[in-house]
Each structure stands twice: as C-alpha cells, then as structure tokens.
Design a protein around this nucleic acid. Structure first.
Length: 256
DNA sequence: ATGGCGCGCGCAGCGCGA
C-alpha cells in the first residue's frame, strides 16, 4: 500500500499536476492540503475518473483538506471536540483497519504573533485528540503539512533560520511531543541523502538552489512502523510549470 | 537588499503562505 501527502496550493490550479502524478505513482491514499476550494467546487468528476474516491473539507480561498483513495472511506472526521476551529485543517477517515489523519497545521506567521499562538494552541489540542486516536486505532497514520522542520538537518541553512517560525524550539518541542505519543517519522526510518526537503520558496530561485525545508511528514503508529518499507520525497512535480511550492511525500507499507 | 513569487478574490491591489 502506497500512501502520500501533498500540499497542492490550490487544488483547481494544480489539478493537471495531481492527475498526472496519480497516473504515474498510483498511490492508494493521498492526503491533500491547501485545496482552497469550497466543497461545491471540488473537482469530483476528474478525480473519480482517475479511479479515486474522495472525502474533503474545504472553505473559500484558504486552507482546505482532502483524502483521495482507492478504498471506500468510513468513519470520516472533520471536526473534533474542544478544537472549535472554523479553518478547515483536519480530515480523518478509516480504510479497512487503517485510520488516516490528514493535517494542515497553521503556518504561524512569525514567532510571538497571534497566528503563532494559534498554531501552538492548535497543536496542543490536536495532540490530545491524536493520543486518544492512538489508543483506539492500532494502525494509525498522521500525515500532512506540519509547518515544522523537526531538526537542523531538515533546514537548508539552519543558521539563517535559527529561532524563526517553522524551526523554533517551541514548535520542535510540540513535534517531539507528538512523536512521544508513539508516532514515528517514516522518512527517518530509512537512510536518506542529505538536503532532502519538501518545500521551497517560490522566490529567489530557491528550488533551483535546493534552499528548502522538510515540513511535510508521514507519522505512523508502532504497528504500522513495522510494516513501512520505504519513504521518499518526490521532487518531480516541483519541476513543472506553475508548480505547488511543496513536493509530495510518499511511504509504502506491506499491508493488504 | 524585509524584496523576491504565486494563490484567491475580483478587476486593483491586498492578505496570505512559509
């Protein structure tokens, strides 16, 4: 089973890239973030024609998450108790015995800002819910755009980014707390080349210079960790005309 | 060099992303 996460930065604009990528990679489940599409405008026809079922939680202009799958989703969650968030950043579904949680973690703007406080509060509330989900789902996968580069090796220039949003100590501590619940970063289960990133700024030729951050992640429960056989970041779609600024992260599992 | 680019909205130029 192949599972991926991709922040597409507008589903309607990126639909040709997504459809081409689905055709090439043939993933079983794909978590999308920043669809920026209200549910009425979700491109159901094209995605169904590609062989995927869908669940989504969108809003006008901003945010928005979706799950595409070969299997039929059940147990769909769009809101959780105590989060009370109008921003569409969370979507979970079951596929047979697998529980998939798709997250679009807030960006945080800058350390100390109101948006940063919202990000930290959001992470705290989500973590409590994920802890609960871990206790009821043996095969749990939490993936998405976390907007956190966990370690300095996930940053092209750690000195320049020191203390900034996406790499600050408090954000990294929140990510560590999530992992300490019993979640494993699939990417780091395997030997990886240096300087592999999942996001590059559109400006200043950042992708060409590989000046990126690894902020998109696939985390798994212990039972799934044992079944994970690979994890990589696919930079192919980032090279296309008018790309998303994020690249997909792809993990494979020896399950059904 | 606090800009650079790309998106949505909506028709100018701003808010937002990371």
């Amino acid at each position: 089973m192949k599972i991926a996460t991709w922040n597409v930065n507008s589903l309607r604009v990126r639909l040709p890239h997504l459809l081409a990528w689905l055709d090439t990679e043939k993933p079983d489940i794909v978590a999308l973030q920043e669809t920026k599409t209200v549910d009425e405008d979700f491109p159901l026809g094209e995605i169904h024609a590609a062989g995927y079922q869908t669940v989504f939680s969108g809003q006008k202009s901003y945010n928005g998450v979706a799950l595409l799958s070969r299997l039929t989703p059940t147990g769909v969650t769009r809101d959780i108790a105590n989060l009370d968030d109008a921003q569409r950043r969370l979507l979970a579904a079951n596929y047979d015995g697998l529980r998939v949680i798709n997250l679009y973690v807030p960006n945080g703007a800058s350390v100390g800002s109101e948006k940063y406080a919202y990000k930290m509060s959001w992470l705290e509330k989500i973590s409590a819910w994920i802890q609960q989900q871990l206790s009821t789902h043996e095969h749990l996968i939490v993936l998405g755009d976390f907007n956190i580069a966990p370690e300095d090796r996930d940053v092209h220039d750690p000195a320049a980014w020191q203390g900034q949003v996406l790499v600050s100590d408090a954000e990294r501590a929140a990510f560590t707390r999530l992992r300490n619940l019993g979640l494993h970063d699939c990417f780091r289960l395997f030997e990886q080349p240096a300087d592999v990133f999942s996001w590059w700024d559109y400006r200043a030729g950042a992708f060409r210079r590989n000046q990126g951050l690894r902020i998109d992640h696939i985390l798994v429960s212990p039972a799934l960790r044992a079944l994970c056989t690979s994890c990589r970041i696919d930079t192919t779609p980032r090279k296309l005309e008018r790309p998303s600024d994020h690249a997909p992260v792809v993990a494979e599992f020896t399950v059904k």
